[in-house]
Design a protein around this nucleic acid. Sequence first.
RNA 1: GGAGAGGUAGCGAAGUCCGGCCGUAACGCACACGACUCGAAAUCGUGCUUGGGCUUAACCGUCCAACGAGGGUUCGAAUCCCUCUCUCUCCGCCA
Length: 429
Amino acid sequence: MLDLKLLQKNPQVVAEALAKRNSSIDVEEFTKIDTRRRELLVELESLKSERNKASGEVAQMKRAGEDASELISRLGSLSDKIKELDAETETIKAAMNEWLIAVPNIPHESAPVGADEDDNVELHKWGTKPSMTFTPKEHWEIAETMGGLDFERAAKLTGSRFAVLWGWAARLERALINFFLDMQTLEHGYTEVFPPAIVNSTTMTGTGQLPKFEEDLFRLNHKDYYLIPTAEVPLTNMHSGEVLEEEDLPRAFTAQTQCFRSEAGSYGKDTKGLFRQHQFTKVEMVRYAHPDKSYEELEDMRQHAENILQRLGLHYRVVTLCTGDMGFSSAKTYDIEVWLPGQNKYREVSSCSNCVDFQARRANLKFKRKGAKKPEFVHTLNGSGLPTGRTMIAIIENYQQEDGSIVIPEALRPYMGGLEKITPEMATK
RNA sequence: GGAGAGGUAGCGAAGUCCGGCCGUAACGCACACGACUCGAAAUCGUGCUUGGGCUUAACCGUCCAACGAGGGUUCGAAUCCCUCUCUCUCCGCCA
């Protein structure tokens, strides 16, 4: 949610910033509603003040044993008026909130201006494409001979965009989870959390999934519950409604969770293989940052994701998303795209964003500076570090051998019981 | 799922039966500052919620709101009524 004060003072500036991300607001309409809201408040509050005074008088008269019936009957009409104005104020406040909650974050000045993903700017590359003496296959083609990934049986059990991992692939999944979590906790200093995978609508609203993107979520029949699309949701809402001390910052959380996405609107995209699933595992990083430091921390977090790919020896590039390609809550986002030789493309494996105070204002996440009277909003950041499925694709495709074997990156071997290579003999059926 | 007890500041807790200067909200603890002390403890003193409106360059000031959440009754609700929610205890079921 944007700062109401900023909108009141500089609506035009906000409108211009939003235009960069292909979003627009009606400044005149906003000013009209906001002015009316404040007029109503002034009137309503003065009436309430009057009522409070008079009620005190009634109390005094009664205590003194005097007859207050005349004053009481006069107060009746005052109360009616208050009720009426109160209702009108509530309506306009609700309209205002509904409007405000649907406005995306404004991009940071360092985010390149652009219309769509074609305008994203490459920041740097790491490593090189693996040299292969044969034509590399896509991961799902390799799985046809090596097994491990079973899409037919998943379709039988559930439907499309699900996978059964078994044998070596299930083991690899588990190894990746542990490897990622160990790096985030032991090397990068994140605190490990195991949060619920189901959250309520307030929590979903805090991070920006609701109210605008309900169609991307799985909603449970039971109550007001949703399956999380990412651990960002529970982790970012962890301290909602609290006021942290300045020295509590930064807070850094990591969690591995199942992520559930309806993938509405992506029909026909990445229909083969593991790339785009309704359910996948991801290790997420979330940071609560001091507002003065959040952009430094964004660089750190991006590095934390990069470190993992480097350790796995996977070639990748980092792009800064342009204003037109950024997510709803983000002020600045880096995407990390890993090289997939089978697809002959760079594909996204991580997205690291600084949401500044946008989510903090929604979720009411505050801290107090030493010596300050008023608490202020923290800055929140989130990044993938990393998803297991897409990383597994990258490993399969980059480490494939001509005979179908898959070499296990050295860093992962301790997590695979020392196994160096997945060979055709290990194929599942 | 059934029965009961609860939700008031950072924590504990009074106020609820019987509605009225009881919301910065008694009392205790914690915390911050000051005094005393060579220093500390103890003691004494002072301070200590959040959001919003008006005003202001800002401080200040002033008003409104918040007693788990939302409704209702009333001139007036922490207090009475209804719904929901969370916590605790017991029973049932259960990995």
